[in-house]
Design a binder for these strands. Structure first.
Lengths: 197, 197
DNA sequence: GTCTATAAGCCGATAGAC
DNA sequence: GTCTATCGGCTTATAGAC
């Protein structure tokens, strides 16, 4: 227990880099161990199976993801619709970076959809539901008529943009999705103060 | 050349079933050959590599996909927005079937995004672009103000629904997406005749 | 055009020493 | 907690007979 957490974190960090970059099934346990600076046998001391490692890789990925959305929303200016649109623009900026390869949760789900009980799928669902609930809360605070359904639609646009920006290798789809989201939010929400100081 | 096309088709049919059900990297060339009723060596007589087989699997999958959308649109009743919504409802019905596992193009793209030059990715892009162009044509015919951008938004919702219905195992996301699409289409299009006979 | 056989190597996971 | 060594099986792809 002395330095175990540190070693575990190093392994998950390595898994995060490799799994996201290459895909789950394309990366061997050997490769993760080597990237973490130890042997496969040592990795199996910390994780009982590759499936457990996959699940922990996604678990670690979830929290910073949601925090970024919240930070971007808080830093944005304008009314509700504009602030939602700003989140899409921020994701678009991230998608322009060289190593960007879509949403790790959706890509993992796509690979493991043939294993319905896989623990990583459950974590993916939890993460996306948490994001959706966060949007619903924001919309409710701003007096939207149906905050839950509006949140579902916005998340639909986010995941659609993740998929298309990945397929087309064009972050512009996030900006298009952001405009669609602004239209939906603007139509459904009562804006207390529209832009201006 | 006598019965070659028939054998090729049998192989692609088997690949279609297995690749879609299990995923690309989860299915071996051996498994495809066995499902097609021949040996691996014979498969390699017809396809020079697994990558070529993957590409042809998607190529075969594209055409019937688009045709279904067109048929559903033609069979639907009501104004433009309602007919677009009907397409989403039809996909939702398909997604309720037991073997449904999302969009084969998006799932393949998610698996192969680490191989930018892969021929299957190019075919996926072509297919999605064809679908988008079909929607744009429909919108243009109906006098929408910006048919191309509207088509992009509708496709954004379709791919978002594909991703979420797959992750959550809930076809209801297609119906929610359909409502969002109807709202966007209704706001952007000039409807010549709104429902009624 | 289809077959048997095999190359050459990687896969996840484990045994047992230290 | 980390190591070397290995198990048993699977991987894409090929050689050569028929």
């Amino acid at each position: 227990m002395t330095s175990e957490r540190s070693t575990r974190e190093k392994i998950i960090d390595a898994a995060n880099r490799l799994f996201y970059r290459e895909g789950i099934r394309a990366v061997s346990v050997d490769a993760v161990a080597e990237a973490a600076g130890l042997t496969k046998r040592s990795l199996y001391y910390h994780f009982k199976s590759k499936d457990e490692l996959i699940a922990d890789y996604l678990r670690l990925r979830g929290h910073p993801n949601l925090k970024r959305y919240a930070d971007w929303y808080a830093a944005a200016e304008g009314g509700l619709a504009e602030r939602i649109g700003a989140i899409f623009d921020r994701i678009a900026s991230e998608a322009e970076r060289p190593g960007w390869k879509g949403c790790g949760f959706l890509r993992t789900a796509a690979e493991l959809v043939n294993q319905p009980g896989h623990p990583a799928l459950k974590i993916g669902v939890e993460h996306k539901k948490t994001v959706e609930a966060w949007f619903a809360e924001i919309f409710a605070e701003n007096g939207a008529s149906e905050p839950g359904r509006l949140a579902r639609k916005v998340c639909l646009l986010i995941d659609g943009a993740f998929s298309q920006a990945m397929l087309y290798r064009d972050p512009g789809y996030f900006r298009e999705a952001g405009l669609a989201a602004q239209a939906l939010v603007g139509a459904a929400a009562v804006e207390p103060a529209t832009a201006a100081t």
